[in-house]
Design a binder for these strands. Structure first.
Lengths: 113, 113
DNA sequence: TTGACGTGAAACCATTTGGTATCATATAAA
DNA sequence: TTTATATGATACCAAATGGTTTCACGTCAA
């Protein structure tokens, strides 16, 4: 049972720390978009949006597919898994108002330690 | 049914974006600590740690209780709730490997829209 | 009362960050 | 082929960030 190589979450947490980037992620949840399309939703230059997309890509949160001269940016929600897991550690300190749900999850995840 | 005032998650996401601060949060999960105690675990000055604690406090992630000349910093895990909720929106894009758990959660949370 | 101790706060510094403008390059269309 | 389009990349800038040092202040103990 070698310990799993845990991914470096830092670029992901970093990517999530900016509100514009969080908005972009939600937008990409609806559909994949080119840089120009994403830029159309914000009051900033395409270059600035491009930088945000690079940070999101560094965090693994989006994937880029090239087609001709266009680049389609798509959400990669799986990159949120390590973040969710990290946050999940703090479940033990929450109020009991979600007790039912919590115990269900813990039972399901018992083998995950 | 007035829409809930959603908290400003930005200071919380910001606070989570730094690895030192994430480490501090986990430390405070074990026990509340003074600044000096927290500082003892890091290779940086007390002043630097104090700044991190301020950022964590701004994000609502810790509470500070004064006793004499000491300040006890305690974890406030409830501030992670909005973050978890925000991330939870992306569940719909995950693989189905947790399908059982997911559907259980969704059923439980149906009234939460 | 006099120190020692724990903390707060300010000034300062290098680096990072989020934005801009500008130019280069590859592809699509006329 | 020529031109328009979509993107990449670079230089530049102001502000924020993460760290330091230094000093002031309240509290506990001799």
């Amino acid at each position: 049972m070698a310990p799993d190589m845990l991914p470096d979450m830092q670029p992901t947490f970093r990517a999530l720390a900016d509100p514009t980037r969080r908005d972009i992620l939600k937008m990409l949840g609806a559909q994949e978009m080119t840089i120009a399309e994403v830029s159309g939703h914000f009051d900033m230059t395409r270059a600035a949006v491009k930088k945000h997309l690079t940070v999101l890509s560094d965090g693994g949160l989006i994937t880029v597919r090239a087609k001709g001269r266009e680049r389609f940016n798509a959400l990669n929600a799986d990159a949120l898994r390590p973040v969710m897991d990290w946050l999940g550690w703090f479940d033990q300190f929450w109020d009991a108002r979600l007790g039912d749900l919590k115990s269900a999850i813990e039972q399901e995840d018992t083998h995950n330690d």
